[in-house]
């Protein structure tokens, strides 16, 4: 569903991604782990071109994103993204946050968008928050709204960029719970996270990144059970207690 070939990206002389290759299958949950600064967020942000890579190819189904003339907004509309900092629109009520893009980008009628939004809010357990402004939500609630907002576009793929890193510990569970449900429903997901428990339980495949390389990848039981590379071992020994 997503195929990445030889993806490279640098900021000035600092190379953050070095010849990354990856394949993501439909309905697969791929979890990207690795130390800070390993390039995992940059990799994820390249997938919907929030970062422009210098080299390589990104195929989403039959479209090469980095080819000239690609309709980038259209590609992005088919991919949901959830950010570490939520990035809800503070000047709009929760419901309007969710309905804006379906109406403006997909051309849904306001009624259709509203019905869908309420359905999604029910799914993330926040029906009662439809008419409040984001400022009055807790971090966990804000992130669940952000997930609902992304789902309202009916994406084929969901990208999660450290979705729980900005949350108070007691709110991590509610967000991971929503993500787990989504995975069980068959959503194709790429998740950058430090939540090893989630990676192990929900991930179909783990990519371990370090210093801009995908060092190792495999099924969770393989990667967590018998890591092959020294760097993977050393990272896991630090994060698994």
């Amino acid at each position: 569903m997503i195929r990445v070939k030889g993806l490279s990206k640098s900021y000035g002389s600092h190379t953050v991604l070095k010849e990354i290759n990856a394949d993501i299958m439909p309905k697969e949950v791929v979890v990207v782990i690795g130390p800070s600064g390993s390039g995992k967020s940059t990799f994820l942000r390249c997938l919907n071109l929030l970062e422009k890579p210098e080299k390589g190819e990104i195929w989403i189904e039959n479209t090469q994103l980095l080819a000239k003339g690609t309709d980038i907004p259209k590609i992005r509309a088919e991919m949901g993204m959830v950010f570490q900092q939520f990035n809800l629109f503070p000047h709009m009520k929760v419901l309007d946050n969710i309905t804006l893009s379906p109406v403006r980008v997909l051309g849904r009628t306001p009624e259709q968008a509203r019905t869908k939004a309420m359905e999604l809010l029910r799914k993330v357990g926040l029906e009662s928050k439809a008419d409040v402004y984001p400022a009055s939500l807790s971090g966990g609630q804000a992130q669940r709204v952000a997930i609902a907002r992304a789902l309202a576009m009916e994406p084929k793929i969901m990208l999660f960029d450290e979705p729980t890193s900005a949350l108070d510990p007691e709110m991590v569970g509610e967000v991971l719970g929503v993500m787990k449900t989504l995975a069980q429903e068959g959503m194709t997901m790429v998740v950058v996270t430090h939540e090893m428990g989630f990676a192990r339980e929900v991930g179909d495949r783990i990519l371990f990144m370090d210093e801009g390389y995908v060092v190792e990848e495999g099924k969770p039981e393989e990667l967590f059970g018998q890591p092959k590379h020294e760097r993977t071992k050393s990272f896991l020994s630090k994060v698994l207690h």
Partner: peptide, 25 residues
């Protein structure tokens, strides 16, 4: 800049992001 990125990630064009997200704020 997260506001613009969120707008882009929802499929908005630069013009739509400006009109609905950036300028009102």
């Amino acid at each position: 800049k997260g506001q613009r990125e969120a707008a882009y990630s929802l499929g908005m064009t630069n013009r739509q992001a400006m009109r609905h997200i950036i300028i009102p704020q």
